[in-house]
Design a protein around this nucleic acid. Structure first.
Lengths: 148, 148
DNA sequence: TTGGATGCAAATGCTTTGCAATCTG
DNA sequence: CAGATTGCAAAGCATTTGCATCCAA
């Protein structure tokens, strides 16, 4: 298990006991797989990886566990232009990032651009809005796919 | 019917005959309601309005008509943080805009910010990407809801 | 007349939920 | 042991589709 996985893992575990919830084999496996992946996994991918460690894990449990992770700020749901949602481990708060998505190979690259965030707040202010969160997705071809 | 509605309406009609498709009562009503609304309608809202003009129109036909509108660049599908998609009439090409969405009253405000678009291309270039389209949504409270 | 269009209901794909059986604290 | 959790299958939603009927060209 990677170091950052361990940290998130512990937070998850602590949240469980703090709320009188139970620490089960399923939750342990799902959390480990999820935090270790670091990727933008879909539920079926997460389920497949979890089942390598224990074939009896059900899809329902994966959905239920993700819901807990989301509610405690440990996971974020992303909906790109696909049918299913993807989930991504959230490390420390405040480090918001956005995504570049290759429409050919589905590669997902994260980026941070302070100046864009600033301009967003500027736009919001002009319209009297107070922004709580935002979504910025850039779709196109990645370097590899452009060459082909 | 508004003037801009009429223009889109004619483009739609011309596309029909040019492709050997038929101009039906349903398509006429759905297109008129859609272009006149100018808003970000959900399918059930569009259906309700269409049924005021003809109660027999089916949901399936609304979905099928929207699919045509999308494929000809006359409608754009938007997926904010809701279950259902919203559709918006697309006037002339090239005038891209983004959205501010009030999480309390669901008001949707459109905006254009050239400098953000520029920065997006800059980010893409840094990562070797070639952007074809993007999605920028700012969620928060609108001026009215902030006061309350 | 005839192939496209419609309405209906059934089918989909993703996600959620009810419930009996099974575990954890 | 009580109450939380799980697996399973059924239910929910938004959207799509098969098919018999209908209609525009």
């Amino acid at each position: 298990m990677q170091e950052k996985t361990r940290r998130s893992f512990e937070v998850f575990k602590r949240n469980m006991s703090a709320r009188g919830l139970k620490w089960t084999r399923q939750r342990e496996i799902i959390a480990e797989v999820f935090f270790d992946a670091g990727d933008h996994l879909k539920v079926d991918e997460l389920l497949a990886r979890a089942r390598r460690l224990d074939p009896r894990i059900s899809q329902a449990t994966v959905y239920r566990t993700i819901k807990l992770l989301k509610s405690w700020g440990l996971a974020e749901e992303r909906r790109f232009d696909e049918g299913q949602a993807r989930y991504e481990p959230l490390q420390e708060k405040g480090l918001h990032h956005d995504h570049l998505i290759c429409t050919k190979c589905n590669r997902i690259v994260e980026f941070v651009k302070q100046r864009i965030e600033k301009l967003q707040h500027e736009v919001a202010r002009e319209h009297g809005f107070e922004v709580t969160h935002h979504k910025l997705e850039l779709y196109g071809l990645c370097a590899d796919c452009r060459r082909r």
